[in-house]
Design a protein around this nucleic acid. Structure first.
Lengths: 198, 198, 198, 198
DNA sequence: AGCTAAGCGAGACGGTACGTCACGTCTTACA
DNA sequence: TGTAAGACGTGACGTACCGTCTCGCTTAGCT
């Protein structure tokens, strides 16, 4: 009744490890299925059997290696938790090895719907959920003004990814703090009533 | 002294047009030099003679088609000018045809240093410069609080790109206004002195 | 003492039937072990356990289906028996389904020593033996001139296979008779002593 | 108007040479397009561009190497010319290197219509034509009895190919002479009127 | 007006990787 | 222990493009 000769865990790990290594060394574009198969000592078919594209392999490899580090446990102070989440993301983006890999992965997302959905579900949603919860708690505690939690998450994480992907200058620790402080303070100046709407 | 047979303007335009069309129809990944050459009725060599990679062709094609629309002329009110810049970017990212193409292009940036530099110089810098100037003028006018202009630009544009690239939900017009309003207002809540730094 | 689970006759027949069917439909080259296993509803291993190569499977399938028809029972008249043997072979080679299959099989022989030996022993030798015996009896009866029986067999069957394999025009019934008649008559012309030896 | 950068003669020869060498060393079945490309220092596409299958490559390689030897110039005596043609074919079939290769090629013919047609036209027809002409001249000269030239050709060459392909015992020089002598003499015995027709 | 050097279209070339197919071996669960 | 099922490492398939090259043409500017 059940499947027989089940999937080889050894092959799975060898493949993910090889993919991760190659992606670090030669970048996402330099990673080929043949290369992964060869380095993992595995047949190409074994890769195609379980993954639909090189993007999904890399995503799996990424999560297998870094998944645990993405989650930032809470420490009580809502605002501080948020700040630590941002630092964690900034650190990842700034990491000499994982940063470019992650950026590459996001790049690949742009022309691969399936990969994008996978990334959304497995990487982005968890972070998002954690963030919005913390924003909501901070709102409830009166630490930050009432605001749509998703919008707040965009305001917090947007600048980090922006620098990493568009300007290709991964965000430093100080930069994260500057972003948060500026956000808390707000941009509004002394001239009352200004809003610029036309 | 001068070249005997100058570059064919006709070939150049045919190539950029073909590249633009293919990129829209099949995405950046589906665009090949052979495909462009074939559609443009041009020899491959003619492409390789004048462009160093497919990324630069696409970038040129993009700028040739959309360059003018990127620039947003000022209208006097500094804050309104900024707002219109953001709307312009949001509209581009939300455009059914150009949005995905632009996202693809930014995706390709992540593993192509030369393309990244080119993009930086020809697309990003002009927008950046315009933005920071307006921020500075708005600061000087007291419309917005004193802030590093680059940081402000990140805060403004970051969320837009974030939604487009990471969440793959291009920013709507309303969303842009929500971002600006929230930024002006600031996140800080009623509880005084909170900052969350550890 | 005895095996606990003896070879499954059902599987054996399903395999040979599947092999025969596939070979007819897609030719020897289009027959694969996987295809046979799949059509027979059998594990590949079951095939590999009992046959050493696809050639041997096909040979078995061929003999299983056509073996009986190869043997041509004698009817008394030695020459007529020979003639009927030739007709039988010609009919097989001309059969719209089995002819090409047999030709394919002989084709495969050319690069498969084991298969060649098997074919030799199981297909060719029986026919050969039958033929040489009939030739010898015909000699003894004075119906045909004294001649090495193997040579005579070659002279009789050679032209048939030649047309089938080299010219790819399977021998017709009439052709067989023309061959026999010409052989009986001999080629020698009226000019005496001619032999052409150098 | 004409094609530009015409086919590389150097590549063509390297490919045919490589194919010939591999076919001798590893047999027709052991020859792969990849192997030929690799040994010839050539891209696979270059082979696929000019040949439709591995059979046609091998056929070309065969003709390139042995074509000239197939033709047997006449020496005046019609019967002797025929005898020399047979010896030539027998020698080829018996050659330790070319014999198996030729047999393999004929084997491949059995499941490749295009190759069969090519072989027919380029290998078989020339020999056939030569043979039938000589038979006709020998008839006219009265050296051999009047007979359909095609039938005579089958009677002459059939036994040789039969031994090579079916019995896998390439015909020796003596065997050729035995065949010819027996054919000239005829099989008919002393018993008059025998024919065996039913 | 003729010469000549560049740009041009075409497309062959040696390569790399693609995604698929079948090989023959293996492991597992069932009968 | 034989079997159906099917995963595994291997290697070839035929295709798509890569970036380089060579060819024969067209054309512009200089003698």
């Amino acid at each position: 009744m059940t499947a027989v000769h089940r999937r080889s865990e050894q092959a799975r790990q060898a493949i993910l490890q090889a993919a991760f290594d190659i992606c670090q060394q030669k970048g996402y574009a330099g990673l080929t299925i043949e290369g992964v198969a060869s380095r993992a000592g595995v047949g190409k078919q074994t890769i195609y059997r379980w993954w639909s594209s090189k993007g999904t392999v890399v995503l799996d490899a990424f999560l297998d290696a870094l998944g645990p580090t993405i989650d930032v446990p809470p420490a009580g102070d809502h605002l501080a938790d948020l700040r630590r989440s941002l630092h964690s993301t900034a650190d990842l983006l700034s990491h000499p090895r994982y940063g470019p890999m992650l950026a590459d992965l996001v790049g690949a997302l742009q022309h691969d719907e399936a990969l994008a959905a996978d990334f959304q579900q497995r990487v982005y949603e968890p972070i998002r959920r954690q963030t919005t919860e913390r924003v909501e708690r901070a709102c409830a505690a009166g630490v930050i003004r009432h605001i749509d939690a998703n919008l707040a998450a965009d305001l917090l994480f947007g600048p980090l990814w922006f620098r990493a992907l568009l300007m290709r200058q991964p965000p430093s620790t100080d930069y994260v703090d500057e972003v948060i402080d500026a956000l808390l303070r707000g941009l509004a100046g002394s001239t009352p009533g200004a809003g610029g709407r036309e």
